[in-house]
């Protein structure tokens, strides 16, 4: 069982300065998530320090070009494969705007189910690199529990399976990009952000509202976008 004090301790200890961006609703959210778990599991989750950066996307701005996916796959894997991208763009070309498209990115969750589910510690919080939730490919045994866990809460899963090199992959905010010359990570650049031709992806250091989509799917359109004939509201 988990009591209220443990929760608050976790939040206060972990969230630190970023707590301002942390929505009240998250507590209820967490209590819901707590059901059926062991104390240790919950403790790991609540004591997890928050990521120092988050990807935000604008589904009404995105043009569906998949350049972000190609950049993500290329920077990390050195090859082009939409299935190896850590950000996924879903499209229905026949549907009406804005229901025709959605980008799904990793949320660097405040309480990362993927980290909690990993039995080997391959998926952990990288405290050296801004607390990004990171897969150590060497340690990954391919059980895919992280993918299933993420799928449970964030359906569809933001962690994915690299079927060619056989390990789980998830967004690392571009910390580990052997095929890209830029410095990535929470303080650096992200390939998808740099490459997106319409600036429909950006990062923030504020913790997005964790419940629902609103915190992560934001409006990145402004006056100039409107001048091109597109809606900004």
């Amino acid at each position: 069982m988990v009591n209220r004090r443990d929760f608050l301790k976790g939040i206060a200890g972990g969230a630190g300065a970023a707590v301002a961006g942390f929505a009240l609703g998250s507590l209820t959210d967490t209590i819901e998530k707590a059901e059926g778990r062991s104390f240790e599991e919950i403790k790991t989750m609540v004591e997890t320090p928050p990521s120092e950066a988050y990807l935000l996307v604008d589904r009404e701005k995105c043009a569906g070009c998949r350049s972000c996916m190609l950049a993500c796959s290329l920077a990390h894997e050195g090859k082009e494969n939409l299935s190896l991208s850590r950000i996924q763009v879903f499209e229905d070309p026949l549907a009406g705007f804005p229901d025709d498209l959605v980008q799904e990115q990793c949320r660097q969750c405040q309480y990362p189910e993927c980290v909690a589910a990993c039995p080997t510690g391959a998926l952990s919080v990288d405290e050296v690199n801004g607390n990004v939730r990171l897969v150590d490919e060497e340690k990954c045994i391919g059980c895919q529990r992280c993918i299933e866990a993420c799928d449970q809460i964030n359906n569809p899963a933001r962690a994915a399976w690299n079927h060619e090199d056989e390990y789980s992959l998830k967004c690392d905010l571009c910390i580990d990009t052997p095929h890209w010359e830029e410095n990535g990570g929470p303080d650096g650049k992200q390939a998808c952000v740099e490459i997106c031709p319409v600036n429909a992806i950006k990062t923030t250091d504020q913790i997005p509202v964790q419940i629902g989509q609103k915190g992560y799917k934001v409006n990145l359109r402004g006056k100039n976008w409107e001048k091109l004939g597109f809606p900004s509201e």
Partner: peptide
Amino acid sequence: EQVRPQGCVSCHRCTRKRTESGHGNE
């Protein structure tokens, strides 16, 4: 109509559109 720009795979300029009603998509 409210629209978004729309591009082919790898496009940097995304020159077409999709519309609210879906009429004229792409």
